[in-house]
């Protein structure tokens, strides 16, 4: 299987603090890959490096076969991100937001219309297409934020804590939409919700204190520490790091 991402000793230091410490990871094309960890584990910093928002202190990565350090501009054209906080233009309508981000990525008009219809169908945003985005509920705004990432036709999409701050119904709705994307686009999502990682991810990497402690499917992680639930397995894996 082709690799969408290959991390080789990727490291990020802020002064004396090491946020991400020499991590090696592979993400397969078309899968939903979860970075699971508590706050401060290094998940968001890893995504920031892979999206060009932050330069690695050491190590390197290949994203979609391109070198992160020397071919960032090409990578940016094929990758999109939905950030932790909802990143939308509040005074623009849903459709204007989508048109705006498509314009930034140079999406042709005919392709935009095609993708727009797909997104309206899959993310059910059609009913609020003319509504100012600041008037949408949190769940709808998050959905729009993901739609803005998808409208550019990325091969790889990063979802940073996509359900943070959403109520349980909105979370479940969003899970449904993310599952629909499986196989169409490679997704890397960060979360500290264990149920979310188990429900959505093909592969999960458990991170703590900037290290990757374990990688595998939810079942593989459970078996690796002989636990019945992902929560117990996570506590065991991360607890092992603390010891």
């Amino acid at each position: 299987m082709n690799k969408a991402i290959e991390l080789k000793g990727l490291t990020k230091k802020f002064g004396n603090k090491t946020a991400v410490d020499h991590i090696d990871l592979d993400v397969n094309e078309g899968e939903i890959f979860g970075l699971l960890g508590v706050n401060g584990a290094g998940k968001t910093t890893t995504i920031r490096m892979l999206t060009g928002l932050s330069l690695p202190t050491e190590g390197n990565a290949k994203v979609l076969g391109l070198d992160l350090k020397s071919e960032l501009d090409k990578i940016k054209m094929m990758v999109n991100v939905s950030t932790q906080e909802t990143a939308i233009a509040g005074n623009l309508t849903v459709e204007e937001n989508l048109k705006f981000i498509a314009g930034i990525y140079g999406v042709e008009a005919s392709l935009f219309e095609e993708r727009l219809e797909d997104i309206y169908t899959s993310l059910e945003l059609g009913e609020v297409r003319d509504q100012r985005s600041k008037t949408l509920s949190g769940g709808w705004q998050r959905r729009l934020s993901i739609a803005m990432a998808l409208i550019t036709g990325p091969k790889l999409i990063f979802l940073d804590e996509p359900t943070l701050g959403l109520d349980v119904l909105a979370r479940r709705e969003l899970w449904r939409f993310v599952k629909k994307l499986k196989g169409k686009v490679t997704i890397v999502l960060t979360t500290h919700y264990l149920d979310e990682a188990e429900a959505l991810c093909d592969t999960i990497a458990v991170m703590a204190k900037g290290h990757v402690l374990a990688v595998g499917t939810a079942d593989e992680l459970k078996r690796s520490v002989n636990k019945g639930t992902l929560e117990d397995a996570f506590v065991e894996i991360v607890g092992g790091e603390k010891k």
Binding site: T51, G52, L53, D73, K76, M77, V79, N80, V81, S82, T83, Q84, E85, T86, A87, I88, A89, I101, I104, Y105, G106, M148
Partner: peptide, 13 residues
Amino acid sequence: SSSFLTRLYASPM
């Protein structure tokens, strides 16, 4: 202050 610019920093802009 919002993460809107962060999204755009990650874009080709």
